[in-house]
């Protein structure tokens, strides 16, 4: 299988879907040049300015217009530039897009994809670094996926574009240049299908996006001590593959949940409840969590480093779960 980086895998998915379906178009700020992370680079050459729309810095109009187009026959893929900026289009996402099918009694399809470049790193600071996926799992009517590998990124983005409902794809900006094997054949990853990234019998670590990689590093270190960690990546948070998570927990009886965003009211808190509900009698220890502290993301490298969950934190949490 060829090696591609995460960003190029997303670019491949966009090309494949735009070739397949002439209704698909991309819209966002600076996307003709492929800024800021290269995902849309070169699309303009193949698909032209009618399908690769460089928008003004006008998030409400970008996201709102995507809904208007989606409910009347097009299939927009919005590049949010930085997921943090979605706050400028929050009415459009939370009140309009998420509710369109439901409020209107199922009359209207809203097949749009929001690509959400997000996450901590490189001193992005308070407005360019946040993990905001938890906001959206709390909004009924949105599907949310969060890939960790190039193959998953391509497969999930393709599925998102084909879905008749709005789907958010969270792309951790620290992963764009991470490489991985991507199947030559066109491969879709269904929503609601978790993936076991490493098998192990002692502790289950449920992790998303960058924390999958940190958890795999933690698992390698712990394996040297004879502790076998199973790393499970939900890949989509809505819908959630409860069965795969529960099967792993029933096997190991010990659970760590690792995410990057702040601890409070988060994705991990939700997953912990899901695991507790399904597997209470199987658990031999309290569920341990790895997450950021409840502060905004600071600028200075030592401060940023302090709030960034890493493999060290996963190792510590695994030890706690083994007590």
């Amino acid at each position: 299988m060829p090696l591609l980086d995460f960003g190029d895998a997303l670019n491949l998915a966009l090309r494949e879907e735009m070739r397949r379906d002439p209704r698909v178009y991309c819209i966002g700020e600076d996307i003709v040049l492929g800024l800021p992370f290269g995902v849309t680079k070169g699309l303009i050459d193949e698909f032209g300015a009618d399908r690769v729309l460089n928008a003004p810095i006008s998030e409400a109009a970008i996201v709102g217009s995507a809904m208007g187009a989606a409910v009347t026959g097009l299939v927009p893929v919005v590049d949010m530039h930085f997921a943090d900026f979605v706050t400028c289009a929050m009415d459009e996402v939370a009140n309009q897009i998420a509710k369109s099918r439901y409020m209107f009694g199922g009359q209207i399809d809203c097949p749009l994809t929001l690509r959400m470049p997000y996450g901590i790193g490189k001193s992005g600071g308070g407005h360019h670094s946040n993990s905001v996926e938890a906001w959206f799992i709390n909004i009924p009517g949105l599907k949310v996926c969060i890939p960790s590998t190039p193959a998953d990124a391509r497969g999930l983005l393709k599925t998102a574009i084909r879905d008749p409902d709005p789907v958010l794809v969270f792309e951790h900006r620290g992963l764009y240049r991470v490489t991985g094997e991507v199947p030559e054949a066109e491969t879709l990853v269904p929503l609601g299908s978790a993936d076991v990234k490493r098998a192990g019998g002692d502790v289950t670590v449920i992790a998303t996006a960058r924390m999958v990689h940190e958890s795999l590093e933690a698992a390698r270190r712990l394996a040297e001590e004879g502790i076998e960690v199973e790393v499970v990546d939900p890949r989509s948070l809505v819908p959630l593959d409860r069965d795969t998570l529960a099967a792993s927990v029933r096997k190991t009886s010990r659970v760590v949940i690792a995410e990057e965003g702040p601890m409070r009211g988060s994705t991990g808190a939700w997953l912990a409840w899901v695991v507790m509900e399904a597997c209470f009698d199987d658990l031999d220890a309290p569920i341990a969590r790895v997450a950021g502290p409840n502060v905004p993301i600071p600028f200075s490298p030592p401060l940023e480093g302090f709030v960034t969950p890493t493999a060290n934190d996963v190792v510590a949490a695994v030890r706690q779960a083994l007590k």
């Binding site: 009618d50 217009s65 208007g68 187009a69 009347t72 026959g73 927009p76 009415d91 309009q96």
Partner: peptide, 15 residues
Amino acid sequence: AGCVLAPGVGLSIKH
């Protein structure tokens, strides 16, 4: 809210 949905409907019509 409709003011930002409308340009997208317009895009779709144009397309």
